[in-house]
Design a protein around this nucleic acid. Structure first.
Lengths: 226, 226
DNA sequence: TATCGCATGATTGGATCCAATAGATAGGGA
DNA sequence: TCCCTATCTATTGGATCCAATCATGCGATA
């Protein structure tokens, strides 16, 4: 009667691929800030946390290490990746060159409702005072602005770059917005305007400047890197 | 008398980290062309080939998948990654923006003996008729030109980009050099000249053009993508 | 008192065994 | 003849057990 595949218990999110599930769980925890850079990741702890054995945990750690979110040392252990100021500078330099390219791919494919949604997000960012809410909105804004791209490699790469720098962006946003810096809001509005008028060139140069300026502010910020 | 650590058998390359060793082995095989895009990778086969069990093999596959060299499908298997024309175009677009940046980081740190070595490699490329030898030299040339950079992220990323496109470069080189195209040789000489005169700007724009031209030729080439 | 050596425990790495899934194949019915 | 279904097998995914490694702390010695 029922096919074997239908016997999957419903209280479990489809038995298959626990390794990928664990990786996503750890990734989310790092992005949310639950796991801070430098923090030790013990295999057994993670296994208990995700209801799996250590084998899929180890696979997940390998995946995350290749993504740059985790640092693995042989026979020693795993830590949430902690970046030096130089590394963050490099990553922003890369973002500055990759993301404008991706935005160019994207613009033609953005439906006007999507641009409306971008505008909504920009408005919410302008109004929010909570730094955590802001960085979430900011991430949504930028990644959504890339969603019109029919790309396979670039979007993945951009997402990974955002993931690796997420923690440092959090620190930066808290400080810069407290200091009353609203330049990012302006940039977002300029980007939206350029996108609406289908000016890919203008949009991508605004974006490049936006990223570059963020880096400059981040470099100036004391206490982010000890 | 002897410490426990000294009991390690000598015929084995230091028991530790078989997973990383397997990953490197598969990676090398893909880069050499022993494993072609689209080829199925069976865990048991790989385990036997590298004298390990399936556990480290699976970890290696996860690593390579994150690097883009292997495609994993849940409950189905692993294949050597096969790129579409669109993906290769994206990767070259990324290379065109990343590698000139890396070269800029590198130039100041290149010892003059290193530049001599670059010149040697350029000469060997000009003289060789063997396509396989050429792509090896070409890879050495470019990666060596980045060796003056004191970077952590960029060099890794550049190497991964080279790895992912290696197979398609092989096809391209065989065809274009048979057709008598020696433009790459000229580019290499121009790059060396710019490096010698410490002109980072010139060097990186030559490099960007070099990469862009390669992509254009590759796109024009029939039969690389079926 | 400081330092070196050594034993012990915590943790990672690997192999084997078992479970689950997917693809192939053979059989039956319209 | 074609197609649908059920079974069987090859292969992947996960858990447990064992081995190897590293860090900690204790004690002996100069």
């Amino acid at each position: 009667m029922t096919t074997p595949a239908a016997r999957t218990p419903e209280h479990e999110p489809a038995h298959g691929q626990s390794g990928a599930r664990v990786a996503q769980g750890i990734r989310d925890a790092i992005l949310k800030g639950d796991l801070a850079p430098g923090e030790r990741l013990r295999q057994e702890e993670l296994a208990a946390r995700f209801g799996a054995s250590r084998v899929p945990v180890r696979e997940a750690l390998r995946t995350l290490a290749a993504e740059g979110l985790v640092t693995l040392v042989a026979n020693s252990g795993a830590w949430v990746a902690k970046l030096s100021a130089a590394e963050v500078t490099e990553l922003y330099g890369i973002r500055e060159r990759i993301e404008p390219l991706l935005l160019q791919y994207s613009i033609a494919g953005l439906a006007s409702e999507t641009v409306d949604r971008l505008e909504e997000l920009a408005e919410q960012m302008e109004q929010t005072t909570d730094a955590d809410a802001f960085i979430l909105l900011d991430r949504q804004f930028h990644l959504l602005s890339y969603s019109g791209a029919d790309t396979l490699v670039l979007e993945v790469m951009a997402t990974e770059l955002w993931n690796r720098t997420q923690h440092y962006r959090r620190q930066f946003v808290a400080a810069s917005r407290n200091a009353g810096d609203r330049r990012a809001d302006l940039d977002h509005r300029l980007m939206i305007a350029a996108i609406r008028s289908n000016d890919a060139q203008e949009a991508s140069s605004v974006l490049a400047m936006h990223i570059r300026r963020t880096l400059r502010e981040l470099d100036r910020l004391p206490g982010v890197f000890e």
